[in-house]
Simulated scan of single mutants.
Amino acid sequence: MSSDQNTQTMKPATAAKKLGVYLEATPAEFREGVVSRGELNALQADPPQWLRDLRANGPHPRPVVAEKLGVSIAGLARGGVTEPLTTEQIDALKDENPEWLQKERATQAEVRKENVRVKKLHAEQARKREQRAQD
């Protein structure tokens, strides 16, 4: 690789996703340009005020909303949440704790439990294969 290769850039949507923010809420200069890998790293290392505000208050993209509520993105859709939410709206949903949210949280907990079980099973199978290979 040569040292004079082009700087890697990404679309603003990709950068916003990597930063965990809702693209439409970012400043116009961010949405209208391209973001280099170096610029992304700088934003992550030392976020400007607009980025800190977005991360703290939102509006948040669906993956962040789902994470904050402890449900899947599909669970959000099943619950009728299709738009980005602010931190205040997320907190209000947590306080309200509607039936759909309780159900989706329980489903997510079961999924996590099953993932742990499968991971342990695969580890045990790999250990047995390795042991047979050594015999």
Rank of each mutant, 00 (worst) to 15 (best):
residue 69 L to D: 11
residue 14 T to A: 10
residue 49 Q to F: 10
residue 30 F to E: 00
residue 114 E to M: 06
residue 99 E to T: 02
residue 98 P to Y: 11
residue 104 E to I: 10
residue 34 V to M: 05
residue 66 A to D: 11
residue 29 E to P: 01
residue 92 A to E: 11
residue 108 Q to H: 06
residue 63 P to I: 11
residue 59 P to C: 06
residue 93 L to A: 02
residue 128 K to Y: 14
residue 105 R to M: 07
residue 118 V to C: 02
residue 124 E to V: 06
residue 74 A to V: 09
residue 74 A to S: 06
residue 97 N to M: 13
residue 22 Y to R: 05
residue 11 K to F: 08
residue 126 A to K: 15
residue 63 P to C: 05
residue 90 I to Y: 03
residue 60 H to A: 02
residue 33 G to W: 06
residue 57 N to H: 14
residue 69 L to W: 15
residue 71 V to M: 07
residue 96 E to D: 15
residue 31 R to D: 03
residue 83 E to R: 07
residue 108 Q to K: 07
residue 22 Y to E: 15
residue 81 V to F: 04
residue 62 R to H: 12
residue 13 A to Q: 05
residue 6 N to E: 13
residue 8 Q to P: 00
residue 73 I to M: 13
residue 117 R to D: 14
residue 111 V to T: 12
residue 22 Y to H: 13
residue 4 D to T: 07
residue 18 K to C: 04
residue 74 A to G: 05
residue 80 G to C: 08
residue 20 G to P: 02
residue 62 R to K: 14
residue 93 L to K: 05
residue 112 R to K: 15
residue 120 K to M: 14
residue 101 L to K: 03
residue 107 T to C: 05
residue 114 E to C: 02
residue 69 L to S: 09
residue 40 L to D: 00
residue 48 P to I: 01
residue 112 R to P: 02
residue 18 K to G: 00
residue 82 T to M: 14
residue 111 V to L: 13
residue 122 H to K: 08
residue 102 Q to N: 08
residue 130 E to T: 08
residue 53 D to F: 01
residue 1 M to S: 13
residue 38 G to P: 00
residue 94 K to N: 10
residue 60 H to C: 04
residue 96 E to I: 10
residue 45 A to I: 01
residue 36 S to V: 04
residue 80 G to R: 12
residue 17 K to G: 06
residue 126 A to W: 15
residue 106 A to W: 09
residue 6 N to I: 08
residue 103 K to C: 05
residue 56 A to E: 14
residue 56 A to N: 07
residue 114 E to W: 06
residue 46 D to H: 08
residue 27 P to L: 08
residue 34 V to S: 04
residue 18 K to L: 15
residue 32 E to R: 12
residue 108 Q to N: 09
residue 27 P to T: 03
residue 45 A to M: 09
residue 111 V to N: 08
residue 48 P to L: 11
residue 12 P to Q: 04
residue 122 H to C: 09
residue 34 V to P: 00
residue 91 D to A: 09
residue 39 E to H: 07
residue 49 Q to T: 12
residue 97 N to I: 10
residue 38 G to Q: 13
residue 98 P to E: 13
residue 8 Q to I: 05
residue 50 W to Q: 02
residue 65 V to N: 01
residue 16 A to I: 03
residue 52 R to V: 13
residue 15 A to G: 04
residue 13 A to R: 10
residue 4 D to Y: 06
